[in-house]
Amino acid sequence: MAAVRKPKIAVWKFASCDGCQLSLLDCEDELLSIVGAVEIASFPEATRAVVKGPYDISLVEGSITTPHDEERIHTIRRSSKLLITIGACATSGGIQALRNFKNVADFIPMVYAKPEYIETLSKSTPINDHVFVDFQLRGCPINKLQLVEVLNAFLNRRKPVTPAHGVCMECKRRGTVCVMVANGTPCLGPVTLAGCGALCPAYDRGCYGCFGPKETPNTTSMSAGWTALGVTEPELVRAFRSFNAYAEAFRKESEAHER
């Protein structure tokens, strides 16, 4: 039998805030064990050393926003056995996808005196709009414990255990009283994917949708609930248009309230 080779992991960045790859460095207790079990082949935020591909696992952070990046993601896909996207930018286009709802022709001169210096696409799009993605880990930012679980699962050839249900379930498990029912606080929890641990309601605030839509969300019903609490149409549009604005369920619901 051939000597056991450590799996090669690469971390790639597109348009993003760096927070999701920082989650890997934030695994203070696990970091040295992780880097003991794998070979970090490319991770520019952490190392200047680069090992040539192909890579066993590529972690991809960020969304596609430039012509150059549109090409680069294909190169990365070709050199990766498994490609895992991490975070709202990579899985839904991120906060920068707010440009997708505007006419970029109006947008650019508003910001740039010299637009000819800048190369940018009219839309910010998630990675799986461009290449096949093996697994998507959602969140703005991702939950670092979920990241460890996903790495662990793929390294051991099993399916990662990450929930598909909503934040409401996490509140019940945590024993948090419903902020919407008890206090009349608008909350995106009923339609938002679990993963953060239902943080916001535990801090007396409504969920604001960092993890994007859960499986089969009933956004129409939730919007009706918000309207009953006195939330206006423009406020509903803004609520669905944040870090996961271009995720299909949130995009459609925000557009429904814009008409």
Binding site: F14, A15, L98, V111, I118, R238
Partner: peptide, 20 residues
């Protein structure tokens, strides 16, 4: 890549700026 934050902050409420 540029991300245009100042542009899309226009029209958002003051209370949204910290999270955005």
């Amino acid at each position: 890549p540029p991300r245009f934050f100042e542009a899309f902050l226009r029209g958002r409420k003051f209370s949204e700026a910290p999270d955005i």
